[in-house]
Each structure stands twice: as structure tokens, then as C-alpha cells.
């Protein structure tokens, strides 16, 4: 009950947080670069909510339920791992090393532990984890492309 409220609250408030971050960067003179984060904010919020809802719908199947909730938690931790770049400013491409490698290493760790502790990687963890990794990698590949910039602008002006 509390969990669902926290999840909906977290996902819904991602929208004004994303708008605030974009406006802050626009004010700092980042130009069109400021719009790039809006897509990531929206997709993360959406995927997080979908994972939580799938977890809730599968609450009578504990092995499925707890793995959806695990993936949702790993997803919501992304901004925290990305902030580790402030401790290591010498690391190049923080978007890759902290935004993808560090944050997604939790998925790899979960796969290893699931295999070790339960004898196999549960399909929810395997395919859900692969989807999250693909989403993160696609975001990195499209980042700062014309398509991403224009989509980010469109989302920003639509939500504002």
C-alpha cells in the first residue's frame, strides 16, 4: 500500500523535477543541450511505474513479484549512481561509466547472485534486466543527436 503510493508519487514528481532540471540548465546557458535529459526522465519514470505495476499484479507469485520490485528499485537508483561522477571528476564519459556501467552493474550482480543462490537466472530478472540495459545504451547512443534534441524539446514544451 505504502509502496504503491511511494512509487506513483516518485514517478509523477519526476515530471516537474525534469522540467526544473531543464530550466536550470537553460538558465545556465546550456542551450539545446538542456532538453536532452527530459526524455530520460520521462522514460525512467514510465518504466519504473510499469515494473511496479507488474510487481503488484504478480503479488500472488512471490518469485515474480520480488524480482519486478528489485528491477524497479535498480531503475530508481540511476540518478544516485550517476552522481558518483562528482567524486571522480577525472573519469571520462561519466554518462557511460556512471550512467550505464555502474548503474547497470547491479543488474549483472543480481543475475550472478540469482544463478548462484537459486540455480538459474529467473526470466523476469533476465529479460527485464536486458530491457533496462538496452534502454540505457540506446539513450547514450541517441544522446545529443538531432532526433533526441527535438524530441526532448517537444516533451519539454508539452509538459511545461
Amino acid at each position: 500500500m505504502f509502496g504503491v503510493a511511494f512509487a506513483f508519487g516518485t514517478a509523477i514528481t519526476m515530471v516537474p523535477v525534469g522540467i526544473f532540471a531543464t530550466e536550470k540548465e537553460l538558465a545556465q546557458g546550456f542551450g539545446d543541450f538542456a532538453y536532452l535529459n527530459t526524455i530520460g526522465t520521462i522514460t525512467s519514470g514510465f518504466i519504473f511505474l510499469v515494473l511496479v505495476l507488474l510487481g503488484v499484479l504478480n503479488r500472488e507469485r512471490p518469485q515474480v513479484h520480488k524480482r519486478f520490485m528489485l528491477l524497479a528499485t535498480i531503475l530508481v537508483l540511476w540518478p544516485a549512481w550517476f552522481r558518483f561522477r562528482h567524486y571522480f571528476p577525472q573519469v571520462p564519459r561519466p554518462d557511460i561509466w556512471f550512467g550505464v556501467v555502474l548503474s547497470d552493474s547491479l543488474i549483472l550482480l543480481a543475475w550472478i547472485l540469482d544463478k548462484k543462490q537459486n540455480g538459474r537466472i529467473h526470466p523476469v530478472l533476465l529479460y527485464g534486466g536486458i530491457l533496462i540495459i538496452i534502454e540505457n545504451v540506446v539513450e547514450i547512443l541517441l544522446f545529443d543527436t538531432e532526433l533526441w534534441r527535438e524530441t526532448g524539446k517537444l516533451i519539454y514544451y508539452y509538459l511545461r
Binding site: F2, G3, F6, A7, G9, T10, T13, P16, V76
Partner: peptide, 8 residues
Amino acid sequence: HGALAFSW
């Protein structure tokens, strides 16, 4: 937002 995400 921070309070909700940390609560989760």
C-alpha cells in the same frame, strides 16, 4: 520527489 524516492 527526493522524499518519495528515498522512501521507496
